[in-house]
C-alpha cells in the first residue's frame, strides 16, 4: 500500500475517532496536542487501525506506556539518554530528533504525529 493511501485511511480514521475536520489532519499535526487526543483515544485509534488495516497491535506498541513515570528514564523533568534509547527501541515509528534537541518530558507527546502513525502502519504492513 502506498504511503499516500495509508495517510488517506489514517486521516479518515482520525476524523472519526477524534471528531476533527479532515484538513486538520496534516502529517505534522500532533495527536495529543493539535488534534486533542486523550489516553482513551489511543485505545480507540489502536482498535480502528487493527480493523482498517488488518494487523494486530500489542499493548504499548503504538504509544509507549510508563516511560515518562520511570525515574530511570525521566529525571528532573527531562528524558534521560537511557529513556531516549528505550523509546528508539520500543517505538521505532517515532522521529525522535525534536525530542533529542529538547528532551523535556512535555515534548514526549509531541513526537506522536500523524506522520508517525502513518510510518507505524507502513512498518506493520511490511512485516505482516
Amino acid at each position: 500500500m502506498e504511503r499516500s493511501e495509508i495517510l488517506d485511511k489514517v486521516r479518515e480514521l482520525l476524523v472519526d475517532a477524534l471528531a476533527v475536520d479532515d484538513d486538520e489532519v496534516t502529517p505534522e499535526a500532533t495527536l495529543i496536542g493539535d488534534l486533542g487526543a486523550e489516553s482513551i483515544d489511543i485505545l480507540d485509534i489502536s482498535f480502528k487501525l487493527e480493523q482498517d488495516f488488518g494487523f494486530k497491535i500489542a499493548q504499548g506498541e503504538l504509544f509507549p506506556e510508563g516511560v515518562t513515570k520511570d525515574p530511570d528514564f525521566v529525571q528532573d523533568g527531562v528524558v534521560t539518554e537511557k529513556g531516549l534509547e528505550l523509546l528508539k527501541e520500543r517505538v521505532p515509528h517515532f522521529n525522535l530528533d525534536t525530542l533529542k534537541a529538547d528532551p523535556s518530558v512535555e515534548n514526549v507527546a509531541k513526537i506522536f504525529t500523524v506522520d508517525a502513525l502513518v510510518t507505524f502502519c507502513e512498518q506493520k504492513l511490511q512485516t505482516a
Partner: peptide
Amino acid sequence: LLFSHLDNNMTG
C-alpha cells in the same frame, strides 16, 4: 461504545 479496564489504564 468504547470501554476501558480501569486497572490497565494508560495513565497508570
